[in-house]
Design a protein around this nucleic acid. Structure first.
Lengths: 154, 154
DNA sequence: TCATATTGAGTTGATATCAACTTAATTACA
DNA sequence: TGTAATTAAGTTGATATCAACTCAATATGA
């Protein structure tokens, strides 16, 4: 190691201890694994659960609208939808008012699967809240919302 | 839509507003994009920046140790290392004391690239801290650490 | 109306993610 | 010592992620 381009340990620790990007990626991996495993008996991932839940609103969202809601790149969503459509859990149809739009719907089978997974989400999430304890869950929700809203336009 | 398996809007909103997993995934995507773009001039992603920074400690970590630190699956890390080794930013060698272990090192070229990217990390992160304002950055760090420590064993 | 700009969505290519499984080295204990 | 259990790491296959680019439909303005 040349001294000329050495990086002081202080700096290494600064990044490790303060970088919100690193902290969020770590937490995201831990929670993704945790909920993926919880939903595994239903053949769902945490992302598929969130996606399908978002299709239960009063309006049929477009790909773009759903991508913004999930703070996800549109093209990532296109790929994710492919496997859900293949499994007939979600369908889509061209919006006849504006044929550029694709309106997404959850199917009865999708809704049934989601309903079956819901109690698992509730208990897993209650356990998580309890583990964090006190104000932390709400503080996290507030902070994470601010992070996501700070730039959910891919 | 059959009424028999309808999901009440209340439930949809409950998941949308309280699910920490969804909130973390959203924030993770937003921050990953933000830092990926900031590091783009250096040909680095946020993950590569964090990974390489972690190789600047006093000890040469093994694949497994680094995976635990990043709360990442070991096999994901194997794949990530492949492209960094191909670019000669990172090297590895078998630990002769225990030949199952692979010890990872950052190269001079890797350290130079990291040093060049460091000011960008500092300014981007300072901007982020400022956008969040007040206690939020520290509250987030505390909460995210608790989330990650709650289960960083893949 | 017609040409241009804008918008919504998809494809391609690269990397990221993890489960399930395999291989190799070491440790434990009979 | 020798065999079984454990540990570290890798491979394969599926999905996730996004940048760069393309295509089609709609909107805008001369």
């Amino acid at each position: 190691m040349t001294l000329s381009n050495h990086i002081p340990l202080e700096t290494v620790h600064e990044v490790r201890d303060t970088c919100l990007c690193l902290a969020v990626q770590r937490a995201a991996r831990v929670l993704a694994r945790r909920f993926d495993r919880a939903f595994q008996p239903f053949g769902l991932t945490n992302g598929q659960f969130s996606l399908m839940m978002a299709l239960n609103g009063p309006r049929s969202p477009t790909v773009g609208q759903l991508a913004i809601f999930l703070a996800m790149d549109r093209t990532t969503l296109t790929a994710a939808l492919k496997s859900l459509e293949r499994r007939s859990l979600v369908t889509s149809e061209t919006d006849e008012k504006d044929r550029r739009n694709r309106r997404l719907q959850i199917t009865d089978a999708g809704r049934a699967l989601l309903l079956a997974a819901l109690p698992v989400w509730r208990s897993e999430h209650a356990a998580l809240d309890a583990e964090l304890g006190g104000d932390r869950p709400d503080q996290l929700r507030t902070g994470l919302r601010a992070l996501a809203e700070g730039g959910n336009a891919p």
